[in-house]
Nucleic acid binder design. Structure first.
Lengths: 341, 341
DNA sequence: TGTTAGCACTCTTCCCAGTTGAGTGCTAAT
DNA sequence: ATTAGCACTCAACTGGGAAGAGTGCTAACA
């Protein structure tokens, strides 16, 4: 269904005004503010049409109109122009990323903060745990009597560690020799292969008790498994409170529940594509708890997995700004990844 | 100032009822509920006395009484009996800790969750970064052309890493030899000493370019410095929303602002003692934003530093339960630390 | 035929006054 | 010292206008 220019103009006006004020928009207000060359009565007729089409709705007879979710959807799909970051913002983003480059966690955190700050919504960045696929390096470090640490580095540069108990008699140099053998045998192998490797051979070569080798292998195994948890960073929860729709505590609770429970959030988010910004409006969301909020989401590639970044806010959202910002941020993340990994 | 038994009983009744209902407590209600053998009129007289002493206050003339902050303070200091964890809860706590033992971060997170769940307030656990003092082990791992990772292990078992750039010609075996020299020279030394060590000697021994050694040393330096950030884990923010005092969005904002900004929270918390539970009530708090909330806090020792654990909630708090729980949790943390480090 | 002015109508919001009810403080009796 | 009784206070609720924003409809107009 396509709208004529005037209807579009009116729909846009209603959306812009409503997003700004959170109040129903009247015909007079539209004519005045956007100084259209038509009368309020004409606007009223057009608005009645738009209401019939489902793009606008009236909270009650004597109120102005507000955009329906389909209205927002139409606007987003057919009319919206993304509002990209202004120069200052781009520079700020670059600066933030540069300052934290040495630590990936910091980069993520600061990008999240940036996104929340610029959009004034709540931002999230989800970093998939890069599948622990290939063994790069293992290091055993003795940490005092009877304790040691297994440090594992994967080819993707992920660092993992786990404490283990070892017989008290074992010294660092014993560990070092086990270490060397492990690295020789396993370097570059897939983890799956490590698990299948013939351990007898290993034990023979090391002349060590089954016990300690098993402990180490178990630790490695666990580390490889445990890598399943994605990292979720959320910023700007406070911004939610500024939205009048969340004056209602029940709504607020639902949202905070989602934000507090990482799995809920991950379930809620749609699969992102890696070159389009995905917008989900109100009832389009899977979760009942999220039927009153919208999500603007982009995906980014990281070591073959897909990461997600975006903002979450009320249906009455500045989609144009949010989409532009999320897109810019995604690009920035892509660049960091490309340059540094 | 000490109160006679009857006044104490009445103060306690007001506190218990008020904490439960969040409503002012009337004289009749007290007599009924706690079936005292005195009349409502007597209670009224006593309550008037308690008000003169500053322990109770009236929202308005025709309302019941609510405890003032001094009232809570008196109760906490002179009358309160801590309500410790019941068996089920203790077992749950033990189980939670055991399940996550291999990963200190997980332990902290789950202890925080437990604390929030049991008290129904918002919990925090602050883990001071153990001062990076002594060098335990360093490992250089080549991560593809021109890139490497410096992995540092301190004697306290903290693992840190940082990416560096290296000349493309450098291979893993070159790194390995640098590695060995570094470990030989530095093992067991304080970081401060590492910085002062005569580098010329190092370069001579390694026959390597100044460049790569400097890069590595710089990385180590940065790691040693950067360790200054405490880890803060907050759970159960959602619980705040159930407290009627935070229906008021402005109050809620103030609190969330504190909880969202780690430095704010750290400034707010008083220095904990390591064997007493510290209770801060309302206006006793340093920060203006926190004048309407109370904090129950305990300290624990970790590698010579002091960590903090506790809950934060409305002034109308179940101090007895909170103090008991926080204390138990502190003990549990102490035990984990003692047993495993 | 599309547009517009005019007007009656609707519905929320705000304000005001009156009512209710919980709870007090005081007084006088026990 | 304690208590019953009672007048008093004040928040919270209730209902009835009045105000105001905005609509839909009709009739006139270009």
């Amino acid at each position: 269904m396509t709208l004529d220019e005037r209807k579009k103009k009116i729909l846009e006006s209603v959306i812009k005004d409503y997003v700004e004020t959170a109040e129903p928009v009247g015909s007079r207000a539209i004519v005045k503010k956007h100084n259209l060359r038509i009368s309020a009565a004409t606007v009223r007729n057009e608005m009645a049409d738009l209401e019939d089409m489902g793009y606008l709705q009236q909270p009650h007879t004597s109120a102005g109109r507000i955009p329906s979710e389909s209205g927002f959807r139409y606007y987003v799909d057919c009319m919206m122009e993304r509002e990209n970051l202004v120069d200052d913002e781009v520079q700020l983003l670059q600066k933030i990323i540069k300052e934290n480059l040495q630590d990936w966690d910091e980069v993520i955190q600061s990008i999240g903060n940036f996104l929340a700050q610029v959009t004034r919504y709540t931002s999230f960045v989800i970093v998939p745990t890069v599948r622990v696929d290939e063994f790069k390096y293992v290091q055993l470090v003795r940490m005092g009597k009877g304790k040691a640490m297994v440090i594992l580095v994967t080819d993707t540069g992920v660092l993992m560690h786990r404490r283990i108990s070892i017989p008290e008699s074992v010294e660092q140099k014993d560990l070092q020799s086990i270490n060397e053998v492990f690295n020789r045998i396993f370097a570059g192998k897939k983890f799956a292969e490590v698990r299948k490797t013939d351990l007898q051979y290993l034990r023979d070569e090391l002349h060590k008790s089954k016990r300690i080798i098993d402990t180490i292998l178990e630790a490695i195994d666990r580390l490889a498994e445990s890598a399943g948890e994605d990292k979720v960073v959320i910023s700007g929860i406070l911004n939610m409170l500024n939205e009048p729709e969340f004056k209602n505590l029940d709504k607020l609770k639902k949202i905070l529940a989602i934000l507090e429970e990482e799995t809920l959030l991950k379930n809620l988010l749609p699969e992102p594509s890696c070159d389009e910004v995905e917008i989900t409006i109100g009832r389009e969301n899977r979760l009942d708890e999220a039927k009153e909020m919208s999500i603007v989401l982009a995906g980014y590639k990281i070591f073959g997995e897909v990461g997600r970044v975006g903002v979450i806010g009320p249906v009455r959202m500045e989609y144009w700004k949010a989409a532009g910002t999320v897109d810019s941020v995604r690009t920035a993340i892509d660049e960091v990844l490309k340059k540094h990994f």
